[in-house]
Design a protein around this nucleic acid. Sequence first.
DNA 1: ACTCCAATGTTATATCATTACATCGTTTGC
DNA 2: GCAAACGATGTAATGATATAACATTGGAGT
Lengths: 144, 144
Amino acid sequence: MTAKPALTRNQTLVLQTLTAAVEPLSAYAILDRLRGEGFRAPLQVYRALDKLLETGLVHRLDSLKAFVACSHPHEHGGEEMVAFAICETCGGVWEFSDSKIEDRFSAWAEAEGFLTRTTTLEISGLCSLCRQRAAAGEAVEAGV
Amino acid sequence: MTAKPALTRNQTLVLQTLTAAVEPLSAYAILDRLRGEGFRAPLQVYRALDKLLETGLVHRLDSLKAFVACSHPHEHGGEEMVAFAICETCGGVWEFSDSKIEDRFSAWAEAEGFLTRTTTLEISGLCSLCRQRAAAGEAVEAGV
DNA sequence: ACTCCAATGTTATATCATTACATCGTTTGC
DNA sequence: GCAAACGATGTAATGATATAACATTGGAGT
Ligand SMILES: [Zn+2]
Ligand SMILES: [Zn+2]
Ligand SMILES: [Zn+2]
Ligand SMILES: [Zn+2]
């Protein structure tokens, strides 16, 4: 059985910090938010993140060099691909999993004999809300 | 018209270095290979890379913090999504563009009202050749 | 109590990227 | 021609991200 071991104090604090944040946080941003809890060095954060990344409770957004708490940790203990949409204006992140996207990559990998271990799927742009706000802003500037 | 301006000396050197390399190179690795050409500071590399990334002649692999020359620069002056498969053993990179993958992301974006600006699509694992070699190696270790 | 092992604490260092400012050469307007 | 404007370049310093190395602590198992 060996149910997944409970999180340690440091891991819990880091996960809480990420869960509470609305936007992705860098390791050093996490560190700053945990100084009150006694955190003093980057390694305390990175070590906790290592475990959290291993168990899938946290994801790293390579394009941002930042970390987010998983939106649905219960779901993908498995192996399915996860993708992220990142709003450049508000910093919001939407995590989604699309089996059809995975199928396409699998098809490519199959054809090439490539064995996939990890994937980085991130799209950056403007979320629906920021898009609307941007359009409204332009309209104002244009004197409409 | 304004045909795209010719590359400057620094840009040319950086692009040549990336093209000659078999694996992705970090900015500092590029710098080291160009010291003989008079390069002395990271900024010389980063500035050249900025332009090369803009024009699509070079890509950054976020998951590696490294850069590669584009495999088919003529093709995507346009806007289509590009994906990369990265072998963790030999460092090889395969650049491919799959309209079906793009269609899936577009479908998601359409549904959410998300406006895509840039994408990061990278899969890491073992290429066909390294996979075979790994299998052979295991066989040897097992005494077969 | 003793050993083992994982987590933690601490310092230093490695790696990646940008800011700030000076210089040089070309183009543009006069 | 000349000067302003601009882009590319050179150089130094700094910021931001991540890891190495080593000491210490605190159970779990014997
Ligand atoms: Zn997740
Ligand atoms: Zn937004
Ligand atoms: Zn390309
Ligand atoms: Zn390989």
